[in-house]
């Protein structure tokens, strides 16, 4: 591990609602007791970390993606743009060129290959990034506008912002979106270690296996946290043992945790076994990387 580079921990899950937000916010708050810590909410479609972090807003910046804008006066209706776009985001309809913003991947091909420059690229707001100062903890929330469909460009821009403006914060926790497709891959790609939060149920196990496969595909070391331990069965533990995936912590099912969570309260300093679990997890990660 290069001491000049921050330690980046991604928290992902496969299945939604297993406790990613609970774990990320509490891990970051716990770490910030001793050192400067960054928490980044990359679940841009449904960001929830802000409910648990108090602080003052330092900055809000609108985030844009670039999309083509049709210049009717320059256009010769040659059809090049419509033929070029693989996403059907630029379509010639008679004498009109329609641009479907939500389908555009900002590849610039239609714009730069247009022989008469009739499709200049322009900014389109897709979301915003909010930075919150909470003492030793800096919190960045990345939030997609309702109606925007693509999470990936916003996730990339958030990583870029972190790497240029917050690279001095030595430990960084990234709360990732659920699933196993492009958004979680984009969110976890920069991580040194991925914590997969699961629950000990058949759904939890099924999605954990997919999440492990996903992380192996992008060559990330992983460890598992079993949340709500005690419900369900022990198949997740058996699977992890067999696949030689380390179990970093087991957080027992406890109605008290669920109640704190429901009110937007952190538990790292309220429930002793949570404090112990968080310490175990961070020690294990530091050994692993």
């Amino acid at each position: 591990m290069n001491p000049d580079k921050p330690l980046k921990i991604a928290v992902a899950s496969g299945k939604g609602g297993t406790g990613k937000t609970l774990f990320s916010t509490n891990l970051a708050a716990f770490l910030s007791q001793k050192q400067k810590t960054l928490l980044v909410d990359l679940d841009v479609e449904e960001p929830n970390d802000f409910l648990f972090i108090n602080g003052t807003i330092e900055k809000i910046s609108d985030q844009y993606k670039m999309i083509p804008l049709w210049d009717e006066n320059k256009c010769t209706l040659c059809g090049s743009c419509s033929n070029t776009c693989k996403y059907h985001a630029v379509v010639q309809l008679g004498t009109f060129i329609a641009v479907f913003t939500e389908l555009c991947h900002s590849c610039y091909a239609c714009s730069e290959l247009c022989p008469v420059q009739a499709l200049p690229m322009q900014r389109h707001k897709m979301g915003k990034i909010t930075t919150i100062d909470s003492g030793n903890l800096t919190f960045i929330e990345s939030r997609l506008e309702v109606g925007e469909e693509q999470a990936v460009p916003l996730i990339h821009q958030t990583h870029d912002l972190v790497d240029t403006q917050y690279k001095d914060i030595p430990i960084q926790v990234f709360d990732c979106p659920p699933g196993t497709s492009c958004p979680v891959v984009a969110a976890a790609r920069k991580a040194d270690f991925v914590v997969l939060v699961t629950e000990p149920t058949p759904f939890g196990l099924n999605d954990l296996r997919l999440a492990i496969e996903t992380m192996q595909k992008i060559q990330k070391p992983v460890g598992v946290v079993i949340n709500r331990w005690g419900i369900g069965n022990d198949e997740v533990e058996k699977y992890c043992d067999q696949a030689q995936i380390p179990i970093l912590a087991k957080i027992p099912f406890d109605r008290q945790i669920a109640e704190y969570y429901s009110n937007g309260e952190l538990v790292y300093d309220k429930i002793e076994y949570i404090t112990t679990s968080l310490r175990q997890v961070i020690t294990a990660i530091q050994h692993a990387v």
Partner: peptide, 17 residues
């Protein structure tokens, strides 16, 4: 949905869609 702050926040966003 579920009666947590996260549940309601996320419900509002998906309802807007």
């Amino acid at each position: 949905t579920e009666p947590t702050m996260s549940g309601l926040h996320d419900l509002k966003r998906v309802h807007a869609v």
